[in-house]
Simulated assay, not measured.
Amino acid sequence: MKTFAYIGCLGFIAVITTEFGIIGILPQVAEYYKISIDKAGYLLSAFALVIALTGPFMTLLTSGIDRKKIMTASLFMFLITGIVSSFSPPFWLLMLVRILPAFLQPVYIATALSVAVAQADENKKNELMSIVFNGVTIAMVTTVPFATWISGLYSWEYSFMVQTAVSLIALIIIQLMLPSIPVKEKKSYGSQINILKKPVFIFSTLTNFFMITAWFSTYSYFADYLSKAKGMDTSMISYMLFLFGIIGIVANWTAGKMLNKNVAGTTAFFLSGTILIPILFYISDGNLWATILVIGIWGFLYSPSFLNASTYMISSAPGALEFANSLATSFGNLGVTLGTTIGGWIIVTKGAEYTPWIGLVFGLLAFLMMILRSIFEKRNQQLAPC
C-alpha cells in the first residue's frame, strides 16, 4: 500500500535527520567541545559503526514482533536522543545518546520497507521502496539544511531541537495511522542466513560497502569541505544542502523508475558519480557558479545511493527481504564509518580538498565488485540445468 510507504517515509525522515543532521554542524560541535574535526566526526562514524555491527542481528531478533511496535519503539529512541542532545551534554554523553538509537535504526528501515511492499505486485515493489527511501532525500532538502541554518542563526543545540520535533511528529503519525501488523509467519534464522553463502550476494554486499564508503568520504564533511576547499560560509552551505536535497528528490524518483527496468544498469549509472564528481570539483576550482553546478550533479548522483545499494543486494536474495535489507543497511553504514574515518584523516593530514579523490578510489572498487557479480551470475546460468 502506498499509504504504508508514505508512513515509512515519514519515519525515515526522522531517522535520517538524526543520523545525518550532525553533518552540517560538525565544525560548530568541534569548536564547542574544543576537539578536532575528525574527533567530532565520531558522532557520525560511531553511530554508523553500531548499525554495521548489530543491524542484522537486531533484525533477526525482532523479526517475530509486531511491525508497528518495532517502528514505534525505534522512533521513541530517536526522540530521546534529540531531547538529551539539545541540552549540550558532556561529549561522552552526547556520544552515548547518539549511539543508542543506532541499534534500532536498521530494524526500522528493514521493517518500513517490508511493510511497504508486503501486499504489492512484484513490478511495483521497487517504486514503493523508492517512496520509503525518499525519506533520505526529503530530509536532505528540508530538515537537514534547516537544522544547519538554525544552528548558524543561534547555536548547534537548536539543530537537535529540530531533530526532536521531526521524531515526535513521525512517532505520533505512526501511532495514529499505522494499524497493528503482527507477523503471521516468522521465517527461520537458517533460511535467512543461508544467503551469506552465495558469492553473488557477497559481491553485491561489497558493492554496497565500497559505494557508500566512496560517497561518504566527502559527504560526511559536506560543511567542512565547502567551507575550507570552496570558501563558503554557514548560510551558503545550508543553501547548498537545500539544493542537494531538492535535486535528490528528483533523483530518487528517477532511480525508482529506472530500477524497475534494470537494477545493475541503474546502480552503475549513479555509481559513476563517485568518479565524475572529484574530476568536476577539480575543474570548477574557485568558480562559485561552476561549484554550485557540480554540487547539483553530486546531489543527483549521490541521493539514490542507499536505494540502489539495497535494491542491488535484494535482487540477489529475493527470499530474505528483511534480512537482506538489514545487511544492506549494516554494510552501508560500515561504509559510512570507513568513509567518515578516512575522510577525517585526510582533512587533518592533507586538507579538505583531497577528500573527493578518496571517493574515486572506492568507486572503482565498487565497479570491480559489480563486474565480479556479473561474471558469477553468467557462470551460474551456464551451469544451471536446462
Results as ranks from 00 to 15, higher is better:
250 V>D: 11
80 I>M: 14
169 I>W: 00
321 L>S: 12
345 W>D: 13
20 F>D: 12
348 V>Y: 09
298 W>E: 04
68 K>G: 01
53 L>P: 02
62 T>P: 00
127 E>V: 13
245 G>F: 00
100 L>V: 14
46 A>H: 11
332 G>H: 07
288 L>R: 13
365 L>C: 12
99 I>E: 06
182 P>S: 09
236 M>V: 11
240 M>I: 02
246 I>T: 13
50 V>M: 10
251 A>C: 02
310 S>K: 06
363 G>C: 10
253 W>G: 05
269 F>G: 07
214 A>L: 04
357 W>A: 13
28 Q>Y: 06
174 I>H: 03
207 T>V: 11
21 G>R: 12
233 D>K: 10
346 I>N: 10
376 F>P: 11
314 I>K: 12
379 R>Q: 14
170 A>C: 01
296 G>Q: 10
361 V>R: 08
363 G>H: 09
216 F>E: 04
15 V>Q: 10
281 F>S: 08
369 M>L: 05
39 K>E: 13
168 L>C: 06
235 S>Y: 15
330 S>D: 13
30 A>M: 05
92 W>Q: 11
4 F>G: 03
117 V>L: 02
189 Y>F: 15
14 A>Q: 06
55 G>S: 08
378 K>M: 11
201 F>T: 11
334 L>F: 14
259 L>R: 08
69 K>W: 08
6 Y>D: 12
91 F>D: 10
36 S>Q: 15
267 T>N: 13
1 M>N: 09
266 T>P: 01
27 P>K: 07
54 T>Q: 07
291 T>Q: 10
223 A>F: 01
190 G>M: 13
209 F>G: 04
52 A>H: 01
267 T>C: 09
383 L>P: 01
95 M>F: 12
158 Y>D: 08
147 A>V: 03
365 L>E: 09
325 N>F: 00
326 S>Y: 00
200 V>E: 10
277 I>Y: 02
296 G>K: 08
142 T>G: 14
90 P>T: 04
106 P>Q: 05
236 M>E: 06
261 K>D: 11
314 I>G: 07
192 Q>M: 09
163 Q>E: 12
297 I>Q: 04
133 F>I: 00
288 L>V: 13
185 E>S: 15
105 Q>E: 14
43 L>S: 06
118 A>N: 12
357 W>V: 09
166 V>H: 05
10 L>D: 05
131 I>M: 04
318 P>E: 12
185 E>P: 02
266 T>S: 14
35 I>R: 03
272 S>R: 08
110 A>Y: 03
256 G>H: 00
297 I>D: 03
190 G>I: 08
346 I>R: 10
22 I>T: 14
121 D>V: 07
284 S>L: 03
335 G>R: 09
144 V>S: 08
248 G>C: 00
160 F>K: 10
276 L>W: 01
149 W>V: 09
304 P>W: 06
122 E>A: 12
88 S>C: 09
372 L>Y: 13
282 Y>C: 09
227 S>L: 04
367 F>H: 07
347 I>T: 08
385 P>F: 02
